[in-house]
Design a protein around this nucleic acid. Structure first.
Lengths: 147, 147
DNA sequence: GTTGATGCAAAGGCTTTGCAACTAA
DNA sequence: TTAGTTGCAAAGCCTTTGCATCAAC
């Protein structure tokens, strides 16, 4: 995965916000771009594995929180009690494998647009909806329970 | 809320499974029926507040896990890193208020059926979908971002 | 040189576990 | 009676915090 252009964009975002382009911040962002969605632990592992730079757990957490607050990542709703971050901020679906505790992005723009249109036409009463998080829990067996 | 009939049903489920109807288990289930969806901590608070019975945190966790494994509850996907349980196991939507970290059930059968029909007609490629978890993140301000 | 970021270590939440004591059946 | 449950305390994760040190600018 060529993350170079994204990293350049990242550096300029940091500059705009008056934040320093530290090796740790760059490494975290590169990890997120490569992993797509990950927990703090997974980000740290990725950085150590690649031998990019030394980094502590605390910094990983701090950096992830900060970049999420800046809107670069989103938190994925999960059932595991661990916080997962997603580097893809545009609206999209998640397919979740309960057994493996694994997320996959489902980048189907047409599907997402239909879904948004669906909620536009079928709005939940009394609420203003910001964001739609859809988690499709899947398996690989023959039959599906809901259909 | 009159939970008496549900509690009778609960006792018979326990009997069927060969599990004892301990005061702690009964209290946890009554709490879940009353709260709808709650974290372990909230369940414990409820029980202490009502003065039903003495119970430790460990027992609350154990009982919730066990009853969830039995299919009486489901875990709600959340972004907080805390596990939330839901006593409503039939398919339904959740409205989540990020600011308050609060869930509400959106019991709109018609909406859920349409959604299931939607995914039946627009299936994510390559996956067998078990369950659909939809989290609608909401606010109360004038405008909605997605529409 | 300044200002902000990181490392470190400690503490704080949430959750699980092991074992002895207990109790529902 | 006895198999299953709970209480308790300890430990295990995940995450945050405070402060001294360090480095990007």
């Amino acid at each position: 995965m060529n993350t170079a252009p994204d990293m350049e964009r990242f550096r300029s975002i940091l500059k705009t916000k008056g934040l320093k382009a530290t090796p740790q911040r760059l490494a975290v962002h590169e990890a997120m771009l490569d992993l797509g969605h990950a927990s703090a632990d997974m980000v740290r592992d990725w950085i150590l594995r690649k031998g990019k730079v030394a980094i502590t757990v605390a910094s990983v957490y701090n950096i992830l929180s900060q970049l999420t607050a800046m809107g670069l990542y989103r938190i994925i709703p999960s059932t595991s009690g661990v916080v997962w971050y997603d580097s893809l901020t545009k609206p999209h679906l998640h397919v979740y494998n309960r057994k493996r505790n694994e997320f996959k992005d489902l980048e189907d723009d047409a599907l997402m647009l239909k879904l948004q249109a669906f909620f536009k036409e079928n709005p939940p009463k009394g609420y203003k909806v910001d964001e739609i998080d859809v988690l499709l829990c899947c398996h690989r067996s023959r039959n599906s329970k809901i259909f």
